[in-house]
């Protein structure tokens, strides 16, 4: 299996606080990798490292490497905007722009200077279809996005991401504001999307990690305690700390 991303000895400091401690792990191509662990363990911080979202926070210092297709994304020469196009992110709360549905989806293309209506229409349709929204939304593309129910908003954010054709999709607790039915839809969608995309998901919901991911990493206090196939991690973890967490005996 090819490694899409390889994280090597990554340290991250918020000022004097070390949030990530020598984290190493692979992210395999077209697989779903889940990061699990208690609040504050560093899993969201690690996720944000993968498209340099932490650059936006002052006083962050990072050492170590994160290689995307073999190239360190922390090289000075990295085009951060280009990186974020290749490695997109879906957040905990759906964050559609206060624009019509259609404009939300084609936003990234417009920012990149694309104005050809046919291209934009085709992209909107393709992206909404990929996010399983086309049939429901094709007749109301010009309604405001924020009028949609939460799960459709979340999938719209995903469609907006897919429109710029990323290679990796980062998801930070993408279902935490969704009910179980909407969650199941997003999970099904993830399993569909992994045919074409590499997905990394941070989740508090261990069953979700067990259900959808191929690989899982368990983090605690900024360290990667155990990384491996989800199947193995949830039936026979090698570390007692992992076993305690996934069986609910943590603490």
């Amino acid at each position: 299996m090819d490694q899409k991303i390889e994280i090597k000895d990554l340290d991250l400091f918020y000022g004097s606080f070390q949030a990530l401690k020598a984290v190493s792990m692979p992210v395999y191509d077209r697989q779903i990798t889940a990061l699990i662990g208690p609040s504050g363990c560093g899993k969201s911080t690690l996720l944000r490292c993968l498209n340099r979202m932490n650059d936006l926070i002052s006083e962050v210092r990072i050492t170590g490497r994160a290689l995307l297709d073999g190239v360190n994304i922390y090289d000075r020469s990295t085009d951060v905007e280009g990186l974020r196009k290749r490695v997109g992110m879906v957040f905990q709360r759906p964050n559609p722009f206060p624009l019509p549905i259609y404009e939300n989806v084609v936003y990234g293309l417009r920012v990149a200077g694309e104005n050809d209506k046919k291209t934009l229409d085709q992209t909107a349709e393709k992206s909404l279809k990929a996010a399983w929204l086309w049939d429901q939304l094709k007749d109301k593309l010009h309604q405001p996005a924020i009028s949609l129910p939460l799960d459709q908003q979340q999938r719209l954010c995903l469609a907006r991401l897919l429109a710029v054709e990323p290679e990796v999709i980062l998801m930070d607790e993408p279902c935490s504001s969704l009910d179980p039915i909407a969650t199941a839809k997003v999970e099904e969608l993830m399993l569909e999307l992994k045919k074409d995309y590499t997905i990394v998901i941070v989740t508090h919901n261990m069953q979700q990690a067990a259900r959808v991911s191929d690989f899982s990493g368990y983090m605690l206090l900024g360290e990667m305690i155990e990384f491996g196939e989800t199947k193995t991690l949830f039936t026979n973890p090698s570390q007692k700390l992992t076993e305690d967490y996934i069986t609910g005996r943590f603490g």
Binding site: M206, Q207, A210, F234, T235, N236, P237, T242, E243, I246, T247
Partner: peptide, 9 residues
């Protein structure tokens, strides 16, 4: 309970 690891086994 959706048990895992040792509990599941």
């Amino acid at each position: 309970h959706q048990p895992a690891a040792g509990d599941l086994r």
